[in-house]
Simulated assay, not measured.
Amino acid sequence: MYRLVATYNHPEDPAVFLDHYRNVHAKLALDQKGLRNFEWGVCSTADGSTPPHFLVAVCDWDNKEAMLEDMASPEGQKGAADLENFAQAGVSFDFYEITKGI
């Protein structure tokens, strides 16, 4: 499995960000044909302090080639273009082959 982790910085208006993420961006992510898993959550901390990131999303594909194919597809391009509509505070991406166990 190949994974993309997107970490979003704290937006100016969290409610507007979440509404767009939930009702637009997440649906665009789910349109990708090779996507095997998609999950996301709003970050918190054990002590109630402000976490380093606002939201983290995880997307999994069978392999890197499948991820690259989805990202180049019209559906993937729509998702990438949508970032400018809600992620003005910034987003970082990490990509890696999943290794389980030792």
Rank of each mutant, 00 (worst) to 15 (best):
M1N: 08
Y2L: 04
R3V: 07
R3P: 00
R3C: 05
R3Y: 03
R3E: 07
L4M: 13
L4F: 08
L4C: 08
L4P: 02
L4G: 01
V5Y: 01
A6C: 09
T7D: 10
Y8D: 01
N9H: 12
N9L: 08
N9Q: 14
H10L: 10
P11N: 11
P11C: 12
E12M: 13
P14W: 11
V16D: 11
V16C: 06
F17G: 05
D19W: 06
D19F: 07
H20S: 06
H20G: 06
Y21E: 03
R22C: 09
R22L: 12
N23C: 08
V24A: 08
V24M: 09
V24K: 04
V24G: 04
H25S: 04
H25Q: 08
H25V: 03
A26W: 07
A26G: 08
K27G: 08
K27L: 15
K27H: 10
A29R: 01
A29V: 11
L30K: 15
L30C: 13
D31P: 01
D31F: 02
Q32H: 12
K33M: 09
K33W: 04
G34D: 04
L35G: 04
L35I: 15
R36W: 00
R36K: 14
E39N: 12
W40P: 02
V42L: 11
V42N: 04
C43G: 08
S44Y: 13
S44R: 12
S44D: 13
D47G: 11
D47S: 12
G48Q: 12
S49V: 08
T50P: 01
T50A: 13
P51L: 11
P52H: 10
P52N: 14
H53D: 12
F54T: 03
F54L: 09
L55H: 03
V56L: 12
A57M: 06
A57Q: 08
V58C: 07
D60M: 04
D60V: 02
D62W: 00
K64L: 15
K64T: 04
K64P: 03
K64I: 05
E65P: 00
E65H: 03
E65Y: 02
M67C: 14
L68P: 01
E69V: 02
E69I: 02
D70S: 09
D70L: 05
D70M: 03
D70K: 05
M71Q: 08
A72M: 05
A72W: 00
S73R: 06
P74Y: 03
E75G: 02
E75L: 01
G76M: 00
K78M: 02
K78I: 00
K78G: 00
G79N: 03
A80C: 07
A81Y: 00
D82P: 02
L83R: 05
E84S: 11
E84W: 00
E84F: 02
N85D: 07
N85Q: 14
A87K: 00
A87W: 00
A87Y: 01
Q88R: 15
A89D: 08
A89E: 07
G90Y: 11
G90P: 12
V91K: 05
V91H: 06
V91G: 06
V91S: 04
S92I: 11
F93N: 04
F93A: 06
D94E: 15
Y96A: 13
Y96H: 14
I98H: 02
T99I: 14
K100Y: 11
I102H: 14
